[in-house]
Measured scan of single mutants.
Amino acid sequence: VHTTPGLPSGWEERKDAKGRTYYVNHNNRTTTWTRPIMQLAEDG
């Protein structure tokens, strides 16, 4: 699994054909234009 540093585990930053940045979530095979926020791990 490709992961971009600074993004949550399983996420990758890519660019489309027009050079726009988007983000790929390999965990559930989705994409988004919005940069994901790293969540702190919570117990329980």
Rank of each mutant, 00 (worst) to 15 (best):
V1W: 03
V1R: 02
V1F: 08
V1S: 02
H2V: 11
H2Q: 09
H2D: 13
H2F: 02
H2A: 07
H2R: 09
H2L: 06
H2T: 15
H2K: 15
H2G: 08
T3S: 08
T3K: 14
T3I: 15
T3M: 12
T3W: 07
T3E: 13
T3A: 05
T4L: 03
T4G: 04
T4I: 06
T4R: 02
T4V: 07
T4S: 03
T4E: 05
P5N: 12
P5F: 13
P5A: 14
P5R: 14
P5I: 13
P5C: 15
G6P: 12
G6H: 08
G6T: 14
G6A: 11
G6S: 13
G6Q: 13
G6V: 10
G6L: 10
G6D: 14
L7W: 04
L7C: 03
L7A: 07
L7Y: 09
L7G: 05
L7P: 02
P8R: 07
P8W: 04
P8A: 10
P8M: 09
S9E: 15
S9N: 15
S9L: 12
S9R: 15
S9K: 15
S9H: 10
G10C: 05
G10W: 02
G10N: 09
G10Y: 02
G10K: 02
G10Q: 02
E12Q: 12
E12K: 01
E12G: 02
E12N: 08
E12C: 06
E12M: 07
E12F: 01
E13T: 08
R14S: 09
K15G: 00
D16W: 00
D16L: 00
D16A: 01
D16V: 00
A17K: 14
K18V: 06
K18E: 09
K18Q: 11
K18A: 13
G19W: 02
G19E: 14
G19T: 08
G19C: 03
G19D: 09
R20C: 08
R20P: 00
R20Y: 15
R20F: 06
R20L: 11
R20A: 15
T21G: 01
Y22N: 01
Y22E: 03
Y22V: 04
Y22Q: 07
Y23M: 00
Y23P: 02
Y23N: 06
Y23Q: 04
Y23T: 03
Y23R: 02
Y23L: 02
V24M: 07
V24P: 00
N25Q: 01
N25P: 01
N25R: 01
N25K: 01
N25T: 03
N25H: 02
N25V: 00
N25M: 00
N25L: 00
H26T: 08
H26C: 07
H26Q: 10
H26S: 04
H26P: 09
N27P: 06
N27D: 06
N27W: 06
N27Q: 10
N27R: 10
N28W: 10
N28D: 10
N28E: 05
N28T: 12
N28K: 07
N28P: 02
N28S: 08
R29A: 10
R29D: 11
T30L: 14
T30V: 15
T30D: 08
T30K: 05
T31D: 04
T31L: 05
T31I: 08
T31K: 05
T31Y: 04
T31A: 08
T31F: 04
T31C: 08
T32P: 00
T32F: 00
T32C: 06
T32K: 02
T32L: 01
T32A: 04
T32D: 04
T32V: 01
W33L: 05
W33E: 06
W33P: 06
W33N: 04
W33A: 04
W33H: 03
W33Q: 06
W33M: 07
T34C: 06
T34D: 10
T34S: 10
T34L: 11
T34P: 01
T34Y: 12
R35W: 01
R35N: 00
R35Y: 04
R35D: 03
R35V: 03
R35F: 01
R35C: 08
R35M: 03
P36E: 05
P36S: 02
P36Q: 02
P36K: 00
P36R: 00
I37R: 11
I37N: 14
I37E: 14
I37H: 11
I37Y: 09
M38F: 11
M38Q: 14
M38N: 12
M38W: 07
M38Y: 11
M38S: 09
M38P: 13
Q39F: 12
Q39R: 11
Q39C: 09
Q39H: 09
Q39S: 12
Q39I: 07
Q39P: 13
Q39G: 12
Q39K: 10
L40N: 15
L40G: 14
L40E: 13
L40V: 14
L40K: 14
L40P: 14
A41N: 11
A41G: 11
A41P: 14
A41W: 07
A41M: 10
E42A: 11
E42I: 01
E42C: 11
E42D: 12
E42P: 09
E42W: 07
D43K: 12
D43Q: 06
D43F: 05
D43L: 07
D43E: 15
D43I: 05
D43S: 13
D43W: 05
G44K: 11
G44T: 14
